[in-house]
């Protein structure tokens, strides 16, 4: 188990190094000069273009800019935002809690609703309830979060006036609609996998044996089938976490919620290099941590993994 941990750790470091190189290169190879983006669409004189480029250190060779970038990361300094002139690390720290809150809330909704629908659907396989739920799942998987969000706003904010559509973050109700939007879409994905996985397990010969022994169906389902069906679901939850983080880009903009997703859009639109790099790095770290945790959890609930 320890060797497994050590190996996972070094693999993660390698992935992180790759992330930093890629972020750095992709940004600089993309067409367009960051100076123009900062000056904006609006007219700029030739003189101001030159002056700004020099003041940002964009005239240095790429390797020099990258070395400076790495050196600063190691020192825990993610640089200063070109757009706001503020430290990137504090801009991210400001926005991260809101996104984590949204992600965890949607994950809770996705897991509860997804597990529930998947279970009901699998245990009623082939019956009308299963068919209705399958249609709902397909609708949920196919519907863009943006659209679902607008529908929820129209229903709960405009028609019923129960929930704010774009309340300030200080209002706790501001979490509900965004979390529902993200959570319901992800619930559909989880439900589909739960259903498939459980149906798979229910067909296994050992469950037939259990039936033959005369065990009650409820005991078979909860004690024998479910734990085995959970194995693929745990790893899916880890992946879903990453998807939810990226889903925050759309949902945060739609509900005018502060967060890392919205910060990312602003950063990309203004080609705020240090900020984009910082956000990608932080998200990569979070994603790696969550997936490492998922892998460990996987090893705990599935003894077969420990052998490898």
């Amino acid at each position: 188990m320890n060797r497994y941990l050590v190996r996972r750790f070094f693999l993660s470091l390698l992935v992180l190094a790759g992330v930093s190189v890629l972020t750095f290169l992709i940004l600089h190879l993309a067409p367009g000069d960051p100076v123009y983006a900062i000056l904006g669409r609006q007219a700029a004189s030739a003189e101001s273009v030159q002056a700004l480029r020099a003041s940002l250190g964009l005239n240095d060779p790429l390797p020099v800019q990258y070395a400076r970038f790495l050196e600063n990361i190691v020192r825990g300094d993610l640089g200063t935002s070109i757009r706001t002139d503020r430290p990137v690390i504090s801009m991210i720290a400001e926005q991260l809690p809101s996104t984590i809150q949204l992600t965890l809330a949607s994950m809770a909704i996705a897991t509860v609703v997804g597990l529930f629908i998947g279970l009901v659907s699998a245990l009623n396989r082939g019956r009308w309830l299963d068919r209705v739920l399958t249609v709902a799942i397909i609708a949920g998987v196919s519907m863009p979060t943006f659209w679902l969000g607008i529908l929820l706003i129209l229903l709960f904010s405009v028609q019923l006036r129960w929930l704010p559509s774009a309340a300030p973050a200080s209002d706790p109700r501001s979490l509900i609609l965004p979390a529902l939007t993200l959570g319901l879409a992800e619930a559909a994905v989880i439900a589909r996998i739960v259903r498939a996985s459980l149906i798979d397990v229910l067909d296994q010969p050992y469950l037939m044996v259990a039936h033959a022994k005369g065990l009650r169906p409820r005991r078979i389902n909860w004690r024998h089938a479910l734990p085995n069906a959970m194995i693929p679901i745990v790893s899916i939850l880890g992946l879903q976490f990453g998807l939810l983080l990226s889903g925050s880009v759309v949902v945060e903009a739609l509900f005018a919620r502060p967060g890392l997703g919205r910060l990312t859009v602003t950063a990309i639109n203004s080609r705020d290099f240090p900020l984009i790099q910082g956000i990608v790095l932080v998200i990569a770290i979070i994603y790696l941590l969550v997936n490492t945790l998922t892998d460990l959890l996987y090893a705990v609930i599935n003894p077969r993994v420990r052998l490898t």
């Binding site: 706003i153 904010s157 006036r161 559509s165 774009a166 309340a167 300030p168 739609l254 005018a256």
Partner: peptide, 21 residues
């Protein structure tokens, strides 16, 4: 006076309709 930052046009309209702005 409170300035709220609502990047989506659709949200600005629904927020107006729901009385939030």
């Amino acid at each position: 006076v409170t300035f709220r930052f609502l990047p989506e046009g659709a949200t600005r309209l629904t927020a107006l309709q729901s009385g939030e702005i």
